[in-house]
Amino acid sequence: MTLQLSALQASLQGAPVLHAVDLDVKPGQVLALLGRNGAGKTTTLRTIMGLTQQTGGHVRLDGRDLGGAPTWQRARIGIYFVPEDGGVFQELSVLENLRLAGRGQPEQVLGAFPELKALWHRRAALLSGGERKILALARAALSGSRWLLIDEPSLGLAPAVLRRLGQAIAALRAEAGVLLVEQNLRFAQSVADDYVLMQRGSTVDQGPIEALRESPFFAQAMSFGSGEGDSA
């Protein structure tokens, strides 16, 4: 029961961007994928979803290689991707967005995401950034996916909203393994169990999140003094 990447390679428009990505996400685990801009974190997530051309290595789910499975199939077998901007349909209402997410009744999410009740029929384009991300996580919960790939959830959110988001992610881990790409170190440390460091298209180190700062690659991989992350 793991989402496993081994020696994963990918290229964008013919130029190789991922060289050797190795990581495992287990159910109930929140794994933070860290590294500086351009290290290939988002590309890794996109490659798992089949959105970026995979040129080598494997993406395995419970030991089964996803090979060249199309994006919709990956989504259906239980991998849910929340892109940086939330990835909700702007032209559709909150309710419609939830309807498209999965087989469950949209009302089911109100327990974990009660704030959506008041926004039920609002077009997603009119939601605030934080509301949009809550909606995205609610969709993820409703989809029943066992693997969540979340890209930069903290981007552009106020601290209070961020705390709420942290709670939501913590709630989701009960059902799923989470692979989290994050620039905001403090946020990553507050929600993740473990880390994986990426540098120039390859994973270089991993360990429990408490030991992150002891990693010999930490300074280099995070282009040290990444105060932008700490202060957000």
Partner: peptide, 24 residues
Amino acid sequence: TSLGLKVRAGVESQTLAELSGIRV
């Protein structure tokens, strides 16, 4: 209809629709 909903989703963004498990 749910079919219509999927069509509207596909009209907005094919990638997002596929990420939602819709066969476009």
